[in-house]
Design a protein around this nucleic acid. Structure first.
Lengths: 334, 334
DNA sequence: TTTCGTTTGTACAACGTTGAAGACATCGTT
DNA sequence: AACGATGTCTTCAACGTTGTACAAACGAAA
């Protein structure tokens, strides 16, 4: 049923290769032949067979984007990655891992049996060894915090500095009892860095570290943020600020604060991380660390393309795109 | 560099086909041979070549999900579609069309040169003819409102009834001056249906249609919702309810109402559409029409699989999954 | 022992495409 | 007139896989 080069060739009265040449804009085809062949192509509605092409020349033009889930931050990032890929003639295949290590390992292995030419991954639970062992020679670029000692390119903003900036901003508006939501007993990856930034800022301000101000959390979603905020309010009713490790946690926290009758920002200031679109419309609008998502996507694609072309330097690259703290009402001076 | 069947075969001392048989769990392979071959496969880290397989047997195991953009509703829907596909052994390739007709037409044509086995699409600007002409015999299932007279399967909740329910609910809490946000001068697709539902409910309640209560909008985003709400408040300061054609518009409207000092729900009730996660955390939490997204995704995949297998009935199917109106604080009795 | 059926393995061709290499005109030079 | 250069098109092989058809080995039944 599908139309192949052969069909076009036989009708146009030329060889298969000539049709192929027309399709691929090979220069040495006479205008006459070209238009004649093109007419038949249009007539029959020929479309190149992707698999055959890839089988022959080893490139699929596909790039995998592997994300834990399609939450707002990742969705916004994905939009930028798709755009960046399109500019370079690649198609993005978005793979949702659910943060499961088994699935993520599959991805590092070249996703679904070498279907794609390269992978941009934002791993949650994958370990350094997983990446090392499984990627083989499949080009891969990691988004988000670096897994220690992994010889792989990666692109991420400086989470420690950004977190410090966020907490310093809270300190600057006179807050002194600053909680954190998104912490963990055994912090790894992103959590470890943001937690470190928080602690360094607290310490630098001469405040003491208070474990009761840590809102531990399993997932970076709204509901856990809501829960954590409630627990914090029970333990430390006098807290006057919260730094949330991502925006969703902050939205949950805002709801809890509202229910407890705490005014934001008068009683409690709140800062988030990621600066998703929702920040501008929450009540009150949320102050947030805003990574330059476009830059993250652009750098990631650029690195990946270099790897795929083999034009990248030997040693793994690390890129830290810009970020800024976007100050909104949720952290106005109390 | 990559390991092929040939490599495995030569090392294991069997034919290529035997290795293939082991890989594909072909029954008539002795346990002995099987384990020996499997050992070599593991040893060499063999992975089947996707393109070669597809070239040979005509199936890629890929399904395209074509969406205008990765806004919250589509992102949530995508999660469900990915899950539904995974259950059936398919991988989803998410394609972001940007709502551009040119891009959507590409998709209907079998996305990127028959890379996928089928397509689930949520078209924005594609016309009936586009679909008819271009899909060829590529299996396709449409999400969202039906394009008139298109002979293609489609899955969507009954938008007219759902909109009526939403407006009736507002009427039931005593509201009488009910605006709509998301309308259009020349409504098509989703907009047409929701607008019709709104108008029918208004008329059935014996109220008169008031063009000044229509908040026309270009995009279903937060910002246009915000703008539209402001204009409505200028034109009809006494309005006591707003029905928004999706949640993002409603979030924008909430912000505008807040800035104008209108209390929600006391002064103005607000209802949205889609019931995205954000609804439960907005201020106040947003009443919204909640489509059974899981069912939408499940039905769509089921239909698509049937089409791909050729086991679907001749005439195009239409499926209307369940929905419910989830009532939250934003529309509590004023 | 012969015969037949079952189990296990192999050889071959083909899927649609493109790179390499070459055939064949045509044309301008010498 | 012979020559190479150039432009245009073709032939051939190969990418890695699997369906088809068949061969070999084996055991059981006659």
């Amino acid at each position: 049923m599908p139309v192949s080069l052969k069909d076009v060739a036989s009708i146009a009265g030329v060889s298969i290769k000539t049709v192929s040449n027309v399709v691929n804009d090979y220069p040495f085809v006479s205008a006459d032949t070209r238009s004649r062949v093109q007419a038949v192509i249009d007539e029959l509605g020929y479309r190149p067979n992707f698999s055959a092409r890839r089988l022959r020349n080893g490139r699929s033009g596909l790039v995998a984007l592997s994300l834990p889930e399609l939450t707002p931050y990742f969705a916004e990032l994905a939009e930028h990655v798709v755009a960046a890929a399109e500019r370079r003639g690649f198609t993005v295949l978005i793979d949702r891992t659910g943060g499961e290590r088994r699935h993520e390992r599959l991805v590092a292995g070249g996703i679904r049996d070498n279907l794609t030419d390269g992978t941009i991954a934002s791993p949650l639970s994958m370990t350094a060894e997983d990446v090392e062992k499984l990627r083989g020679n499949h080009p891969i670029v990691l988004l988000g915090e670096r897994l220690v000692h992994v010889g792989v390119d990666h692109v991420a903003i400086d989470s420690v500095a950004a977190s410090q900036d966020a907490v310093n901003h809270l300190l600057g508006t006179g807050r002194r009892t600053i909680a954190a939501i998104g912490t963990s007993r055994r912090p790894t990856g992103t959590v470890a860095l943001r937690q470190r930034g928080y602690e360094q800022a607290i310490k630098a301000a001469g405040l003491r570290r208070d474990r009761a101000l840590y809102g531990d959390v399993e997932l970076f979603h709204r509901e856990p943020g809501y829960q954590a905020m409630q627990e914090l309010l029970q333990r430390r009713p006098a807290l006057d600020a919260v730094f949330c490790f991502n925006d969703l946690l902050a939205f949950g926290a805002l709801r809890a604060l509202h229910e407890w009758g705490r005014r934001v920002p008068e009683d409690v200031a709140v800062v988030g991380f990621d600066d998703v679109a929702e920040c501008r419309y929450s009540s009150p609008p949320l102050t947030s660390v805003s990574p330059d998502k476009r830059a993250v996507a652009e750098y990631a694609m650029e690195l990946l393309v270099q790897r795929m072309q083999g034009s990248a330097p030997e040693q793994p690259q690390e890129i830290f795109p810009d970020y800024e703290l976007v100050i909104r009402q949720s952290s106005a001076a109390g």
